[in-house]
Amino acid sequence: MKSLKYTTALILLFIFTNCEKVVEIDVPSIPPKLIIDAAFEVNFDEFPVTANTVVKLRLSADYFDTSIPTVTNATVFLTNLSNNSVINFNDLDQDGNYVPDVAFLPQSQVTYELTVIYNGETYKGEAMRVKSTPLTNVEQGDETLFSGEETQLKIEFTDDGTVDNYYLFDFSNNLFLAIEDRFFNGSDYNFSFFYDEDEITLPTTVTVKMSGITQEYFTYWRVLIDQSGQNAGGPFETIPASLVGNIVNTTNSDNFPLGYFHISETDSYQINLVEKN
């Protein structure tokens, strides 16, 4: 229900967007932190079912640095805690993206432990595959929101009424939305997402991804989206704070990593967006 707050702030922003300017700011800096971005996606609605299981290792950089360093010399492996089998990950392309030695499909009801060893310190996190539901329909609408220049995307799916669900939507172009089913538990739910004029160039093709996520990952993304500046601004902005994921440095807990280990079920939908009046 964060949307409640955003819309209030949005009006303000909308009235005064022309009063924005880029300024030079001296920002403080900290020693680099290890970033572990391990969001596995199981494409459960495809046949055959495939999975995207990349572990991206990076280092944090100063805010205005133009590049983010990759970590290519780490040891990465995944342990299936139900049978203690181990899958090794390797950075084949030396780009910080570690892929499993053998094709691997995360199973339901199994806890996986991700281990990263870097600079003599060991980092561990656990995840279990989170169920999701397929997208029933994605289509372009012709309504607009504030400026009259937005592109409407209508999303439809059926929520599972037996459990609390949390979803992460990836609308391409680094546009994300995290929602919970608290207010539509068990219903055929439909809502609209609006691309701003500067977020998209029509005509184009976008991929909409919907993932089932844990409650903790939902909270994580809610804050992540907030702090990435997508919705920030004005006196209604919340006080930013550090965003801790679910991975622990077991060697030196003070040197905690950032990032998250998560396994979701994901459904994708590709759609062509065209110019409308």
Partner: peptide, 13 residues
């Protein structure tokens, strides 16, 4: 005090 990327999204620390 810094930046990183998650799923392609740039995030300040």
């Amino acid at each position: 005090v810094g930046q990183y990327e998650i799923q392609g999204l740039n995030v300040p620390i």
